[in-house]
């Protein structure tokens, strides 16, 4: 039987002070090999100082078909933004 090699998502921190960012994916048998492969494939030119790998199967994603109900309600809640409130110039920067 041909076993398939699991897929891992790779996240790279470009340098300290920045968050890890999704870079791509990699196939590897386990987390040790996944880290090694991710280093070889995604950091050949100093792209990062830290790598996270997560099994792709463990990622839970929101459904793009529900994007409207999930994310659009924020558009009509403009009172959540500072510019919704008028403050006179005389008050100074706020």
């Amino acid at each position: 039987m041909v076993q398939t090699t699991p897929l891992w998502e790779v996240f790279i921190r470009p340098r300290n002070g920045l968050a890890h960012k999704h870079a791509g994916s990699i196939h590897a048998a386990d987390e040790v090999l996944a880290l090694q492969a991710a280093r070889d494939v995604y950091t050949r030119r100093g792209e990062g100082t830290s790598i996270w790998v997560v099994r792709s199967a463990d990622i839970v994603a929101s459904d793009p078909d529900q994007a409207a109900e999930n994310f659009e309600p924020t558009a009509d809640k403009i009172y959540r933004h500072p510019t919704f409130y008028d403050i006179p110039d005389d008050v100074g920067h706020m």
């Binding site: 398939t4 090699t5 897929l7 791509g24 990699i26 070889d40 494939v41 050949r44």
Partner: peptide, 18 residues
């Protein structure tokens, strides 16, 4: 490496590496 970046992009469309 370029081959691997690209296989990974293709896999997002539901085709497997195998």
């Amino acid at each position: 490496g370029h081959g691997l970046y690209l296989y990974c992009a293709a896999e997002t469309l539901g085709v497997s590496r195998e």
